[in-house]
Amino acid sequence: MIPESFITLAMQVDEVFLLIGGAILVIEIAEAWFKGNLKGKTWLEMLASASTQVPYLLLETTMMTALYFGLYIFSAEIVTWHLPTSWPWLIAAILLADLTYYWEHRIAHRVRLLWTQHAVHHSSRDYNIVTAVRFGPLESLWSFIAHLPMVLVGFSPDVVLGSVILVQAYQTWLHTELIGKLGPLEWVLNTPSHHRVHHGCDAKYLDKNYGGILILWDRLFGSFQVEEERPRYGLTTDFDSQNPVKVWFSEMPALWRDIKRAKSARELRGRLFGPPGWKP
């Protein structure tokens, strides 16, 4: 398979998962309506989640397009070694992208500067399929940086980008409470049950289940937690706004205040690159 065909296939798979997500959303809305839980706040929360696509896509079509254009030139001119694009190598690329996503995701939870972007995805107190598209404006920049080693190994930018799309597309259906536990699949795959844990702000659920497609990485690296009682969703802080601008930049005001308060270079490094909640 040529790399261009692979990325086309990845886009088609992404569209399939979007259709699945749309079907789940219809069922979620119908269920909430029958139960009398479809309040105005629910709609506002969904709109706030969807609104994050405005700055995200704006940066995708400008900054990220330019960066990927540069990556294609770098791969063609500097990286003189290229891996085959046969199916065994494509499967290896998807697995490597999934492992990369695990560490990219885990680091984003533990480095405050990166958390300012990823916290947007976690800031909703509701948990439904629309949460899947709730992104920080600059999340894709960190993803781009994290996947650069794949290009240096010899995978073409098309294969890397296609693999990233597949890992992200798979996660669309995870953002729902409609689907319970899935038996033996829970041992290998990331499932809605595992991902609900990841979105929980209860102490036992914090910083668990970072996986994209496979939950094996969490089991291997000690970050796995089974879903027991229903999680309380959202951030540990009391963020409960449906104002789109506040949702987009929810963590930035506090970070800016802490930067201005920093009394030394060490403290500034801690405020920027320490874990969320770091104090001198």
Rank of each mutant, 00 (worst) to 15 (best):
S75L: 01
A76W: 07
I91Y: 05
V133F: 11
T85L: 01
A76Y: 11
L67D: 07
V159R: 01
L58C: 12
T80L: 12
L161A: 12
L71N: 03
F144V: 06
Y56F: 15
E77F: 03
Q168I: 09
V160D: 04
T131E: 09
T42L: 14
F155E: 01
A93F: 02
L83C: 09
I78K: 05
L44C: 12
Y56M: 09
V54C: 09
V167Q: 03
L114Y: 03
V120I: 10
H118W: 03
K41C: 08
L148H: 05
D126G: 08
Y72K: 08
S86A: 13
T100S: 14
L141T: 10
I73Y: 08
Y170F: 15
L161H: 02
A92K: 04
L57V: 13
A146C: 13
E60C: 10
H122Q: 08
S123N: 12
I91G: 04
A92E: 04
L99A: 15
L166S: 02
Y170S: 08
A92G: 13
M64S: 00
Y127N: 02
T52L: 04
W87T: 14
L114S: 07
V153C: 05
H147K: 14
V164E: 01
S86P: 01
I145Y: 10
R134P: 06
A119V: 11
H82Y: 04
S140C: 00
Y170K: 11
N128L: 05
V133R: 00
I145V: 15
E104S: 11
H147G: 01
L59I: 15
Q53V: 10
A97E: 06
A48T: 08
L71Q: 00
S156D: 05
L67V: 08
W103Y: 13
R110F: 10
W43K: 10
A48S: 15
W103A: 10
V160A: 08
E60F: 08
D158V: 01
P149N: 10
P157E: 06
V164W: 01
G40T: 09
S51A: 15
Q53Y: 05
W43S: 11
Y170I: 08
R110M: 13
H122Y: 07
V79D: 00
L58I: 13
K41G: 13
R134S: 06
V111R: 01
H147C: 03
F69G: 06
T42H: 13
L166I: 14
T100L: 04
Y102R: 09
F144K: 05
L47I: 13
L57C: 04
P55T: 07
H105A: 02
F135C: 03
N128E: 09
D158N: 14
Y127M: 08
W81S: 11
L58R: 06
V160T: 06
L141D: 07
T62D: 09
L59P: 05
S124Q: 08
H122C: 05
P88L: 09
L58Q: 07
T61V: 12
K41R: 15
Q117L: 03
S163V: 03
M64H: 10
S51P: 06
P157G: 06
